[in-house]
């Protein structure tokens, strides 16, 4: 337990009206990890981080940050966490520099320390020139940067980012990715919620997939893909023999291409090529179709991650 940045035990949240957003979830996030909480909209990601950070009252169960209970020891727990919420929000009465100094002050940083941290954040996020502007005067991408800067200004050991790259351009997304990797390398624990599968695969060393208020699986992206993914190998052959046998692999064929499903396409490919060579089959082209966390989600829930997201967006 000492090694856990976040420990969640049988956490349940039932909203007014009876909707069960979280159903007794257990989750451990090791210190120093880059952890992804994945799931479609409405899966329970934001509720989970809302409970951790004090925005949502839990119904039952418990959660702790660095061993500090988020309810009974909320002061200690909250000072260890910084949250960048999904929805942009800004105090419109102050410039972004003042806003960062105030936010640092709420966490107990002195005025001087808060000002130096605010200036560092402004510089790191390329906002120094906009320091005296209010958030209303910034573009969407800049607002997102300020939002993340607010989460980091008090230098917390646990950084929680709820959909940090939602609606941002590719350049900013990669800038944020680089900075988050740098923070993680310095020992910060990062909890990232996202429904961009490629973001989780690129950044996270561990992920949990949450769906309908339950953690459906957890592990490193590689582990999950290799055990639950459904990649494939496509081999274009000059002339497919009438009675081709590739056991233990199964395959289907369309025209002169073999489709061989496998969870380990990279390691299986040389074996299959070897087998085909022994059968004196002439290979024209080999293509590996890698599995992704999207496939894992599809396999576990029977639904496409992206389709699910789109459906909810279109309601």
């Amino acid at each position: 337990m000492d090694q856990m940045a976040i420990h969640i035990d049988k956490l349940t949240k039932i909203y007014e009206g009876g909707f069960k957003a979280l159903d007794a979830i257990d989750l451990d996030i090791p210190k120093g990890s880059f952890f992804g909480l994945l799931g479609p909209n409405g899966a329970g990601k934001t509720t989970t981080i809302g409970i951790l950070t004090g925005l949502v009252n839990l119904t039952s169960g418990s959660a702790a940050a660095m061993g500090k209970d988020v309810v009974n020891e909320f002061r200690e727990a909250r000072s260890l966490m910084g949250l960048s919420p999904q929805e942009l929000n800004f105090d419109v009465f102050f410039s972004i520099r003042q806003l960062l100094i105030l936010q640092a002050g709420y966490y107990g940083l002195s005025k001087d320390r808060g000002a130096s941290r605010a200036d560092l954040m402004l510089e790191r996020f390329g906002l120094t020139e906009k320091a005296n502007n209010t958030a209303r005067e910034l573009s969407g991408g800049m607002k997102r940067r300020v939002q993340i800067a607010k989460a980091l200004v008090h230098d917390p050991p646990i950084i929680i980012l709820d959909e940090p790259t939602a609606g941002v351009d590719i350049e900013l997304r990669h800038m944020l990715w680089d900075y988050l990797r740098e923070l993680n390398a310095k020992g910060k624990t990062i909890l990232l919620t996202t429904h961009y599968i490629e973001e989780a695969e690129a950044l996270c060393d561990r992920v949990a997939i949450i769906d309908q208020g339950k953690i459906v699986t957890e592990g490193s992206p590689q582990e999950l893909i290799s055990t639950l993914g459904t990649g494939s190998i496509e081999i274009k052959i000059h002339d497919i023999p009438a009675e081709l046998n590739l056991e233990p692999w199964s395959f289907s064929q369309s025209e002169n291409t073999l489709h061989i499903p496998t969870s380990r396409p990279e390691s299986d490919m040389p074996k299959i090529i070897n087998l085909l060579t022994q059968l004196e089959v002439s290979i024209e082209e080999v293509k590996i179709c890698k599995s992704s966390l999207e496939d894992v989600f599809l396999k576990l829930t029977g639904r496409s991650f992206l389709e699910d997201t789109m459906e909810i967006k279109n309601v």
Partner: peptide
């Protein structure tokens, strides 16, 4: 009301302030 309406009340609720 402004803090609620513009959602920046959340910035306070997540701090160690009681």
């Amino acid at each position: 009301m402004q803090a609620k309406f513009l959602k920046f009340l959340d910035d306070l609720l997540i701090t160690p302030l009681s």
